[in-house]
């Protein structure tokens, strides 16, 4: 297992992160060490074991479909870095 700078760049792109060249080198070696450590799981036989995604066994949690008041537009928009009327404004998406 060897994590290259190219792997780091690929994963950073997926995660929407931009890394400085020195950071890429550092992450490659640190991720390599960590992934090398987690390799130990591969030595464990898990055939037929059901994966656990949640500590408490539970089915869907249903409730009555009753409308409650929500926080409202002004509160919801209060932290917006930029807004246009009742919308969050972002840089232009379509040319």
């Amino acid at each position: 297992m060897k994590i290259t700078v190219a792997d780091v760049e690929h994963v950073a792109r997926l995660a929407r992160l931009e890394l400085a060249p020195a950071e890429k080198e550092q992450f490659a070696s640190q991720m390599d060490a960590i992934l090398d450590y987690v390799e130990k799981l591969k030595g464990l036989n898990t055939d037929g074991i059901v994966p656990t995604s949640h500590a408490v066994p539970m089915e869907n949690a249903f409730r009555e479909d009753v409308v409650d008041p929500s926080i409202g537009l002004e509160k919801a928009l209060a932290n917006a870095p930029d807004r246009a009327g009742t919308f969050f404004a972002v840089p232009k998406v379509i040319e």
Binding site: D7, V8, V11, A12, L14, A15, L17, F27, M31, I34, L35, V38, L41, K42, L44, T46, I49, V50, P51, T52, S53
Partner: peptide, 25 residues
């Protein structure tokens, strides 16, 4: 980065699902 890697195409079963199975153990 680590989490994105573990969930990315080609590694999902080998890392993420494997870890969930070990969690069961």
């Amino acid at each position: 980065m680590l989490g994105t890697y573990a969930l990315s195409s080609g590694y999902y079963d080998a890392y993420y699902v494997k870890a969930q199975k070990v969690r069961t153990l």
